[in-house]
Design a protein around this nucleic acid. Structure first.
Lengths: 121, 121
DNA sequence: TTTACATATGATCATTTGTTCATATGTTCA
DNA sequence: TGAACATATGAACAAATGATCATATGTAAA
């Protein structure tokens, strides 16, 4: 590797431990997986959605119940439920005029709990 | 409760199960906690940051190494490391000109793993 | 103390995201 | 069928976010 190349590459550490860097490179997940992972965490990255999930943890519920419990507009909740449904964290069941939403994934409680443990430290 | 009130409140379910709704209300975490929780998940809601964390999972590393491993600008990485440091997920150690970053929290691996399990289903 | 390098940071810009408003769809009951 | 209600949705807007660029800070060696 010429001296010009090494300048372009950046700090000296790269050259000293180039082999280590190469090994680490292999351990990084594919870009597709990383995007999916980020998208997954994005779902929990909004307090309204977290509230909805907490509410549904207790019992299935209709849209306007959730809206009331969370002090949010029916529209806002409906939009977020759509997001949650697309992410398959939530499922819907129609009963006459009302639509009941419930969790469609048993791990949600664990994920929220683990997050909670973290911020409580 | 008058008929006018009930109309304002929304769907009929509210009235039928008002007691249940009240109980659920008690189980929702405080708003402060919800915001903190959302902020916590926000950290993992970006693929660049996840990449950085994966890299640091293997070994401590300097900024430009991370930049090279992630195919990102030194500046972009530095900005994100700042975020991660403020969230106390990462700590820095200076050695001469270079600054070595490393994970400051042992749970990060678990959190990423749990997320990964999820998207692999 | 000047030079070179590693990192940090402020400003800017484009993109994404969440809410609101108005309105559409779907369902029940008179 | 039409009125009333529950939910869904598209458009618009404001706020948040992440990358880039230029430049500043900090450190070591000549």
């Amino acid at each position: 590797m010429s001296k010009e190349d090494s300048r372009e590459l950046g700090c000296e550490f790269i050259h000293v431990h180039e082999d280590i860097v190469d090994k680490v490179k292999e351990k990084i997940p594919d870009d597709d997986n990383l995007y999916d992972l980020a998208d997954f965490f994005k779902i929990f990255a909004d307090s309204t959605r977290i509230k909805i999930l907490y509410v549904l943890l207790c019992s299935e519920m209709c849209v306007c119940d959730i809206a009331q419990l969370t002090n949010m507009t029916q529209s806002a909740i409906s939009h977020q439920l759509r997001t949650l449904k697309q992410s398959q964290l939530v499922k819907a069941r129609r009963e006459g005029k009302t639509v009941f939403y419930s969790l469609s994934d048993g791990h949600i409680k664990n994920i929220l709990s683990q997050g909670f443990e973290h911020i409580s430290e």
